[in-house]
Design a protein around this nucleic acid. Structure first.
Length: 426
DNA sequence: TCGGACTAG
DNA sequence: AGTTCTAGTCCGA
């Protein structure tokens, strides 16, 4: 990160809910939650929803009876909208630093420098620009290490004194220690419940306790990952800024069902629909897979008839071909017990490599790809909608009854002409 | 090299 | 009745 001694971390507040609010002002000031796939559990809460005591991961069916009394609005995940809003935020951030690492759908690290005053001003500029041009609220943390910058962002979010921008070194040193002595180690990046329990057992409870721990002892008793965390809160950078990752090591498509699947025949239907997703995603990234793993599972909450069948199939050649993937995934059916209630299934492709440099022999052995079936499937479903065409039993009419539930879906405001927001002037 | 443990978002 | 999904790193077998 040449020329940048500092890192700014920009993070959208309650991202999914804020993206919804950008197009639906009636959600402003109201408690809003966004639900996971299948409307299963809460994945995003606004400050108002948090204030009601709603926790992350809380199942919607437990919340639903109280929603009306609370004035709580629940929405299904609208990933198409969030993806587009995310792209707009990231594009905008690119104007403020030559070094942007997009870390997740709603977060980025930016290489920055300057005097404390100038960096605080830059933070405010970014915050205002994202709000004004994209319509979502962000907070900004600025420090020398990724560990501290994530902490600074958290302070900016929860402490109104910072007004959304926290430059760590602008805080006097004794006040920084005071803040760290009041925060549990769970608040740190990379520390969750398991590590917190183990650290607490050793008497390390606060971030300040951990900062004062010996990194070598931490490495020996825990791992190099936690040692790096300790050094980062001490102010020594250990986690470098990353280049954009070009390829993936693996690609997973997995979903829970709205209704359990109980027969091998139905699972075959699931596999034929599911296989088309990794196929399309591989093609999109110009990748081919050598190995496919198909899996299914019963509910974690149902203790009888537990079953987690899986098959790992070496593919005859590196491929993204839906026909070959479907055929491989279908072998999962042999592991399905009739009558057992499977609630989820998925397909994982691994050993990925870029398309091309195939030997002529492989091309000869791979007739489907040559005929462009994947591309054909994709263009037809693009034109006539998902489910309009499919391979094998995915092509059956009537529609499967196990597909995903999304009862509270908002429009795809920014990516589909027919779902554009209508504004009336009077 | 593989699978399990743990984590993030 | 019902409790997400994707992807990474590290570590021990």
């Amino acid at each position: 990160m040449p020329g940048s001694d500092y890192i700014a971390h920009v993070d959208v507040n309650s991202f999914y809910a804020s993206a919804e609010r950008a197009f639906n002002p009636s959600l402003e000031g109201v408690p809003v939650v966004v639900l996971s796939n299948n409307d299963g559990c809460v994945v995003t809460r606004t400050a108002e929803a948090k204030a009601l005591g709603i926790s992350m991961g809380e199942p919607w069916f437990k919340l639903a009876p109280r929603a009306k009394a609370w004035g709580l609005v629940a929405l299904s995940s609208n990933y198409e909208l969030y993806g587009d809003i995310s792209a707009r935020v990231m594009e905008l951030l690119g104007r403020y630093s030559a070094w942007v690492e997009v870390y997740s759908i709603d977060e980025a690290f930016l290489g920055v420098n300057g005097t404390p005053e100038r960096m605080r001003q830059l933070g405010r500029t970014i915050k205002d620009a994202v709000r004004r041009h994209v319509g979502v609220p962000v907070c900004v943390g600025i420090a020398r290490t990724k560990g501290l910058v994530k902490l600074a962002n958290k302070l900016a979010k929860h402490n109104p004194d910072f007004a959304g921008v926290c430059h760590w070194e602008s805080i006097p040193e004794d006040a920084r220690d005071g803040l760290m002595s009041r925060l549990s180690v769970v608040e740190l990046w990379g520390v969750a419940t398991r590590l917190t329990n183990r650290l607490n057992a050793m008497g390390i409870r606060t971030i300040l306790d951990l900062k004062n721990a010996n990194p070598v002892m931490i490495r020996d008793r825990f791992s190099v990952v936690l040692m790096r965390t300790v050094m980062e809160v001490q102010g020594t950078p250990c986690i470098p800024m990353e280049e954009e990752r070009v390829g993936r090591d693996q690609l997973i498509f997995s979903r829970s069902f709205s209704t359990p699947v109980t027969t091998a025949a139905a699972m075959g239907q699931v596999m034929s629909v599911y296989a088309q997703q990794p196929s399309a995603r591989l093609a999109k990234h110009g990748l081919q897979a050598k190995v496919l793993t198909a899996f299914a599972g019963t509910s974690h909450y149902n203790q009888d008839n537990i079953s987690y069948p899986s098959v790992c199939v070496p593919l005859p050649m590196p491929t993204a071909d839906p026909v070959l993937l479907h055929k491989a995934a279908n072998s999962l059916c042999e592991r399905i017990y009739e009558g057992v209630k499977y609630v989820r299934a998925g397909i994982m492709v691994t050993d990925l490599r870029p398309t091309g440099n195939q030997s002529p022999l492989e091309l000869f052995e791979n007739p489907h790809e040559e005929r462009g079936i994947g591309t054909l499937l994709e263009s037809v479903s693009k034109k006539y909608g998902r489910g309009s065409i499919g391979l094998g039993s995915a092509g059956v009419r009537g529609g499967p009854d196990w597909s995903m539930k999304r009862d509270m879906l908002s429009p795809r405001y920014t990516t589909h002409w027919d779902e554009l927001l209508l504004v009336k002037a009077s």
